[in-house]
Design a protein around this nucleic acid. Sequence first.
DNA 1: AACTTAAATAGGAATTGTTCTTGATAAGGG
DNA 2: CCCTTATCAAGAACAATTCCTATTTAAGTT
Lengths: 159, 159
Amino acid sequence: MAMATLAQHQHSPDDTIHGHGLRMTGQRRAVYDVLMGERNHPTAVEVFTKVRGQVPNISLATVYNCLETLTDCGLVKIVTHERGPSRYCPNLEDHAHFFCDSCGEVSDLPLRARKRPQDVWEVPENITISHHQVAFRGECPKCAKKKNLKSEARNLKSK
Amino acid sequence: MAMATLAQHQHSPDDTIHGHGLRMTGQRRAVYDVLMGERNHPTAVEVFTKVRGQVPNISLATVYNCLETLTDCGLVKIVTHERGPSRYCPNLEDHAHFFCDSCGEVSDLPLRARKRPQDVWEVPENITISHHQVAFRGECPKCAKKKNLKSEARNLKSK
DNA sequence: AACTTAAATAGGAATTGTTCTTGATAAGGG
DNA sequence: CCCTTATCAAGAACAATTCCTATTTAAGTT
Ligand SMILES: [Mn+2]
Ligand SMILES: [Mn+2]
Ligand SMILES: [Zn+2]
Ligand SMILES: [Zn+2]
């Protein structure tokens, strides 16, 4: 597993991959394009299904390999949540994730300017933080609206 | 999966379990005691190994069942980190976790008074948050010290 | 105390998501 | 074009967890 470097300052994903002594193959490009296209935080299997449209006989293991390579090169981030399958995110900014419990949607929550997680949790100053991972769970606006409509309908009927 | 209720205000774990229409069996008590004893965030297998001292022929599936029951009753929390095995925590206060990359130690980081995660990440006000999960990774003080001693020794030798 | 009924357990099989292995294929530099 | 090495497809293996089922246990009820 190679160290992830500052990919966002390179000019192209190709350069970034080359910078790691690796090649930008058709499979890697296709996987990367799927992630850049759909910014839904797809799982490996979802990427696999989508990418088959471009590279019809790519294997699932190759999709996993490509995702690992892209992650190691710092072009995408892996997102884990509870015991669900890993998801992949091409947003390289520092951000947290929101997971809707009712529809499963995953979305990005940007870090506020000049704020650090350490402002909220007591981190002893003799420990060194290299990463943080933050997940919120709840109900997205779409699902909340849907639920409201349902309860309105129920009220009408009961009258 | 039953809804977790406010276990910390009950008087005993037995009451809490009874409150959910369940029984405090020998296996459940033993699992709970292991968690309360070692506050290291053990995995299911680690709990299994420890609890066998008390209940010699408990099965791993039962340990999983007990852990799930205790979690559902709100007596313990499940802690996931990347793709590692789930760990279990009897600290019911709102807290984050720190994972040492070099020794694997897991420790609790309390929420600061009057702070909320929403202060650090932009959460659209039309989304409802029910839970948050926060993990920090880095190097613990013990490991940092160990590393320093090593590099000192190296310097001495190279002179 | 015996009877009844439902909950809980042990043990093993099954499932899920991911990683590993291996032989074949494809790139890129000389 | 050839050589070397990276990459790939396919399927086996793996780790963690969940599911299944026959048996045991506990709580209530006579
Ligand atoms: Mn994201
Ligand atoms: Mn904890
Ligand atoms: Zn939703
Ligand atoms: Zn450490």
